[in-house]
C-alpha cells in the first residue's frame, strides 16, 4: 500500500513538473508553429497548430524576413553593440572587482563601494534616459552604435563587478601571495594567475551580459532612429509601419529571443548569483 502510494505520488509530481515545463515552453512553441505557416493558414488552423499534422510547414516567412536588409542590419547592429559593450564592461569591471576582493579601502569601506556599484543596477532606467539622450545629443552621438555601447556598458558594468568580485574572493589567496613574495606585480598576478582561474566565471558573465545588452529596449529606442537600430527596436518599428503580421512577427520574435535564451543556457550555474546581485549563490 505504502509503496503503491509512493509511486502514485511520484507520478503526480512528474506530471506537475512536465506541465510546468510545457507552460514555460508554450510561447516558444507557438512562435515556431506560427512562423512555419503560410499567412493564409495563420487564422484558419484551430488550436495548437501542430506542424506536419495540421498543416505543411514552410520556411517562406523565415526566408522573407531574413533576406530583408533592415533585418540584417538590425542583427549586425545588435551583435556589434552587444560584443563591444560586453568587452568594455569586462575590461573595466574585472580589475575593479579584483580590487574590491583583494585590497582594503579605507576612506570608503569595500562593502560600501560594492553596494554603490550595485545600486546602478536597480536604478530605474527611465530616470537616466532623458539626460542620457540630451548628453548624446550634445555630443552628436544620437543614432550611433557608440551611444548604444556607452549606455549598455553602464547597465552591465555593476553586474560584472558583483559577480567577479565574488569569484575572485572565492579563489584561494595563497597562490597570489607567494607570487607577490617572488616579486610579481599586482597587475601581473591578476593577468597570469587570477584571470585563468576565473575563466569559467568570466565566460558565464560574458554570456549573461551579452544577453542583457541584446534585450535592452528603452535606450535603444530613445537613442537610435534610422541607422543604429537594434533587433528589439526593429521589431517595434515593423509593427508600427505594417501592423501585426502574425507570421512575420513570429519569425522576428524568434530571431530576437533565441540568441539570448541559448546564451543563458550555457551560463545556468551563474544565473541565480547574477540575478540576485550576488545575494545568493545558487
Amino acid at each position: 500500500m505504502s509503496r503503491k502510494r509512493k509511486r502514485t505520488k511520484g507520478i503526480i509530481i512528474l506530471v506537475l513538473a512536465v506541465a510546468a515545463a510545457l507552460w514555460a515552453f508554450m510561447p516558444f512553441y507557438w512562435a515556431i508553429s506560427t512562423s512555419l505557416r503560410s499567412p493564409l493558414e495563420t487564422f484558419t488552423i484551430a488550436g495548437l497548430g501542430i506542424p506536419f499534422i495540421q498543416f505543411r510547414p514552410t520556411l517562406a516567412n523565415w526566408i522573407d524576413q531574413l533576406s530583408i536588409g533592415e533585418t540584417q542590419r538590425a542583427l549586425l547592429n545588435s551583435t556589434i553593440v552587444a560584443v563591444f559593450s560586453a568587452v568594455i564592461a569586462l575590461i573595466l569591471g574585472i580589475p575593479a572587482a579584483y580590487a574590491l576582493a583583494r585590497f582594503r579601502f579605507f576612506a570608503i569601506k569595500n562593502k560600501d563601494i560594492t553596494v554603490w556599484f550595485l545600486s546602478q543596477r536597480v536604478l530605474p532606467p527611465v530616470v537616466t534616459v532623458i539626460p542620457f539622450f540630451l548628453m548624446m545629443r550634445s555630443a552628436s552621438l544620437l543614432d550611433t552604435r557608440t551611444a548604444l555601447v556607452l549606455a549598455n556598458v553602464t547597465f552591465i558594468l555593476p553586474f560584472v563587478v558583483v559577480i567577479m568580485r565574488q569569484t575572485f574572493a572565492d579563489l584561494p589567496v595563497e597562490l597570489e601571495e607567494s607570487a607577490l613574495v617572488d616579486g610579481a606585480t599586482h597587475f601581473g598576478i591578476l593577468r597570469n594567475i587570477s584571470l585563468p582561474l576565473a575563466a569559467p566565471a568570466i565566460a558565464a558573465t560574458a554570456l549573461i551580459i551579452l544577453a542583457f545588452t541584446w534585450n535592452e529596449f528603452l535606450f535603444a529606442l530613445t537613442l537610435g532612429s534610422r541607422q543604429a537600430v537594434t533587433i528589439p527596436v526593429h521589431m517595434a518599428g515593423a509593427v508600427d509601419t505594417r501592423g501585426v503580421q502574425f507570421w512575420f512577427m513570429a519569425v522576428r520574435a524568434l530571431v530576437a529571443m533565441l540568441p539570448p535564451t541559448l546564451l543563458a543556457l550555457f551560463a545556468q550555474r551563474y544565473i541565480v548569483r547574477g540575478l540576485t546581485l550576488g545575494a545568493l549563490k545558487g
Partner: peptide, 23 residues
C-alpha cells in the same frame, strides 16, 4: 525540465510582448 523552465528568463521582453499579443 529545470532547464526548460528557465528559458523565459532571458527571452527578449519586447519580443515576448509582441508574441503574447498574438497569443
Amino acid at each position: 525540465l529545470r532547464t526548460i523552465l528557465t528559458m523565459p528568463l532571458f527571452a527578449t521582453p519586447i519580443a515576448i510582448g509582441y508574441l503574447f499579443f498574438t497569443i
